[in-house]
Amino acid sequence: MAGCLVAGTAAAGTLGGTLQAQMQLTAGCMVAGSSGATAGLNFGTLDFGSRPGTFTGIVTATPAGGEGVSGPTQLVCSPEVLGISVQVGSGSYAGQGSGIGVGSRAMRHGSTTAYIPYELYRDAAHTQPYPAGSAVTGINVPANGAAFSLPIHGQINKSNPTALPAGTYTDTLQVTVTY
């Protein structure tokens, strides 16, 4: 009977081997603070601040608050991406307000016919404009994958002292970054 008990007991065994773990990363860019989405992004706000309705002169702004992050809107690209192109649409009111100042795009006050024209540039010196609807290519990015500011610089150049109605002036721009 003892022999039957030994034969009926299974011996414990072990298995050994390896398991591979892997992940493939692709070259790309994202708005700092985003989850890596490629569509429906919030590039922030180009806020020119507050001025009296009779102001004249130049006012500048850069995008801030992209993807809900405080401070300047920044992009981050993988180290393999050495250059990007940026296309900025013409906005909703292109060509309006030319009697007030200079600019190919314009912001509108609510549903009125009051406009403030403005222009967009890729450089802080305001010498390289973004043509409405055309991509600007050859924009260098840091080779080490460091964050950098979205290269959009806005400028209002209101030359006419005509008073404009008080209120908020807005425009919506479509931005496409290609890497």
Rank of each mutant, 00 (worst) to 15 (best):
V102N: 10
F48I: 01
A124P: 00
T176A: 14
V136H: 06
I156K: 08
V59T: 09
S70V: 13
H109T: 10
A124K: 04
V136E: 05
L75Q: 00
R51S: 09
Q87I: 11
V141Y: 03
N42P: 10
S92V: 13
N160D: 15
E119Y: 06
E80M: 13
V69N: 08
A147K: 12
T137C: 10
N160P: 07
G49K: 04
Y121V: 03
C77P: 06
I156T: 11
E67Q: 15
S70C: 08
G53R: 05
Q74E: 07
A106S: 12
Q128A: 14
T162K: 12
D47M: 07
V88I: 00
T168Q: 15
F43L: 08
G101A: 04
L82K: 15
N157D: 14
A61Y: 05
A135E: 08
A125E: 10
Y169K: 01
R51M: 14
V136K: 01
T45F: 03
E67T: 11
T45S: 08
D171F: 00
P72C: 09
G110H: 10
G145A: 12
T168W: 09
T172G: 06
D171P: 02
F43P: 05
Y169S: 00
D123M: 05
G101T: 00
A166M: 09
A163H: 11
D47S: 11
G110R: 12
T162M: 13
G167I: 06
S98I: 11
T168L: 15
S134G: 10
T170H: 06
T113G: 14
P131V: 09
S85N: 03
L150D: 03
N42E: 06
A163Q: 15
S78P: 04
V177Y: 05
V177S: 04
S98P: 10
